[in-house]
Simulated assay, not measured.
Amino acid sequence: MPDEDGPAQQEAPTVPAPGLGSLVMDVVRGRVGELRRERGGLWSLRPIEGGQHWTVAPADTRPVTPGERLRAETTRRNARSRGALL
């Protein structure tokens, strides 16, 4: 029998923020980024090789896999060896 107060509303699950500097995968964009800050319920991610940051909803991220972490760290080292600003 339906609830007399109406259907129960489910809250969106909250995703705990990993530590600043952690690597996360933006599943919408398919990019790995470094967590720079959290503001207004959104996370600011920075590309591993440097460049313009982007904003993502925490629900659109996941932890990186070991392979993704290795690729990201290699990308960072290669950017530094080229003299890219990080």
Rank of each mutant, 00 (worst) to 15 (best):
R80I: 04
T14R: 08
P16L: 04
V27G: 05
E73N: 00
L23P: 01
T74K: 08
A59I: 15
D5P: 03
P18G: 10
A72E: 03
Q52E: 11
A84K: 03
L85D: 14
L35S: 06
E68L: 04
A17D: 14
R29P: 00
Q10L: 15
T14N: 04
S44C: 14
E11A: 15
R82T: 07
G83S: 13
G41I: 09
R36T: 12
P13E: 15
V28Q: 08
A79F: 04
V64P: 00
G21F: 14
L70H: 10
Q52S: 06
Q52I: 03
R46V: 02
A59H: 11
T55S: 03
A59N: 12
V15E: 02
T75D: 14
V27A: 09
E49R: 01
G30Q: 13
R31W: 05
E11F: 08
E34T: 10
V28M: 03
T74D: 12
L86G: 06
R62G: 13
T55Q: 04
S81C: 05
P47K: 00
T65P: 03
Q52R: 14
G67W: 05
D5G: 15
R39K: 10
E11C: 06
Q10A: 15
M25R: 04
G83R: 13
E38S: 11
A84L: 05
R71S: 09
P16S: 03
D3H: 11
R46D: 00
T61R: 02
L42P: 00
V27K: 07
S81K: 04
R62I: 12
H53F: 03
G83E: 14
L23C: 08
G21H: 14
R77N: 06
T74N: 09
R77S: 08
D60F: 06
P63C: 01
A12S: 11
A59W: 08
V28N: 06
R39G: 07
E4S: 14
R69S: 05
R31P: 01
A59E: 13
G6W: 12
G19T: 08
A79E: 09
Q9H: 07
A12Q: 12
V64T: 01
M1F: 11
D60W: 08
L45M: 11
G30H: 11
P66D: 10
Q10D: 14
T14L: 06
R76C: 05
L85S: 15
N78W: 08
P18T: 12
R76H: 13
Q52T: 07
L85K: 12
G50P: 06
L70M: 11
G21W: 15
A72Q: 01
P2R: 13
S81H: 05
P58V: 07
S81T: 06
N78E: 15
R69I: 02
R31F: 05
Q52M: 09
Q9W: 05
A12V: 09
D60P: 02
A72V: 01
L20Q: 07
